[in-house]
């Protein structure tokens, strides 16, 4: 199998097959089930709500198809690259885990109720739950290792640009203000506000007041945290690289003497970094991601890197490389 076929089979076909088998098991069991069946269990494992198993059929089908579509969208190869990014591999491996979990749980809870006259006398759900969790973890782990390895550096072929011609008496700074596109930021804030109001309303009515207060405080912190990573001031000067968010923190500082090199890369926010803001892409690769496209990638001596989606990244990379060269030249030979 080629790399791409293997990705599609593991991340998309396998979850759909698992879901299909689960649906068949539930449909075949329908005549042997009590009516109504147990559909919800309390913390002690005993059934406490009853209904029809048809909802499960729809739920399994919708989750499996929606995840398959999402995984297909995320795992499309990046232009000019072969192989998977860390995030693509993760999304593909989550498919068998997620679909395996809900399918084993729902099909299992149907199987244990076969031949029972009254669902209230049915067995505990705990063995089914344990089986489902173990099976899902096993499926996800096997999928991760069977999937093609993700590339540490997806486009390592991009050359390091030449440094700028700076005279010994010249000082220079490169700086830029970065912002997540207004539309994307609005969508994100909209989702946050809907979640805040929705969950807040539920908690207001059903939970003690202090739970509601804790929720509001946690959510306020979350909003500050998210908004703080949508707007950045990025600076390259003699001291090195600095990316500072709008509130001053969080920030990324890379002193000149820790920089190995800087270059321009092309990145995809979703497929490469899994989203916007501060992102981790596996194996010491971090990103300050406000959009897809041109980005500055700085590699440290220890092999870790930071990718920042700036415009005119080439100028920034050349300037940083100039400072690195200048610092090396200024040091006595032999010391490092």
């Amino acid at each position: 199998m080629t790399v791409n076929t293997r990705s599609v089979v593991i991340g998309i076909i396998v979850p759909l097959v698992i879901a299909f088998v689960g649906l068949v098991v539930i449909v075949v069991s329908l005549p042997d089930l009590p009516s109504p069946v147990a559909v919800h269990w309390g913390p002690n494992g005993a059934a406490d709500q009853f209904g029809s198993p048809i909802g499960w059929l729809i739920f399994i089908a919708v989750v499996a198809i929606a995840w398959a579509a999402f995984a297909f969208f995320v795992s499309r190869p990046l232009p000019g690259r072969t192989g998977l990014t860390f995030n693509q591999r993760l999304v593909l491996a989550v498919g068998p885990f997620l679909v395996g979990l809900i399918t084993v749980l729902m099909a299992g809870s149907v199987l244990v109720q076969r031949g029972i006259a009254d669902a209230r006398s049915g067995p505990s759900i705990v063995p089914v739950l344990v089986t489902a969790i173990v099976a899902a973890i096993a499926l996800g782990t096997v999928a991760w290792f069977v999937l093609p390895r993700h590339a540490a550096h997806v486009d390592a072929a991009t050359p390091v640009p030449q440094s700028l011609d700076l005279a010994a008496t010249e000082r220079a700074v490169w700086t830029q203000h970065l912002q997540v596109a207004r539309a994307a930021a609005l969508v994100l804030c909209g989702i946050l506000v809907v979640a805040l109001v929705g969950a807040g309303t539920v908690l207001w009515f059903v939970a003690p007041f202090w739970v509601f207060l804790v929720w509001v405080v946690l959510f306020a912190l979350l909003i500050v945290g998210v908004v703080g990573t949508l707007s950045w001031r990025v600076t390259v000067d003699e001291r090195g690289f600095l990316a500072r968010s709008v509130f001053g923190y969080p920030r990324f500082v890379i002193p000149t003497d820790r920089v190995l090199s800087a270059r321009t890369v092309t990145t995809s926010a979703i497929r490469d970094f899994g989203g916007y803001g501060i992102r981790w892409a596996g194996r010491g690769r971090f990103g300050v991601i406000t959009r897809s496209g041109e980005a500055l990638e700085i590699t440290r001596h220890n092999g870790s890197s930071l990718t920042v989606t700036v415009a005119h990244a080439d100028v920034a990379a050349r300037l940083l490389n100039s400072f690195v060269e200048r610092a090396r030249a200024a040091k006595p030979a032999g010391s490092s």
Binding site: A167, W174, V315
Partner: peptide
């Protein structure tokens, strides 16, 4: 933006 100053 890139800004340079030359002390010389």
């Amino acid at each position: 933006m890139l800004v340079t100053v030359d002390l010389a």
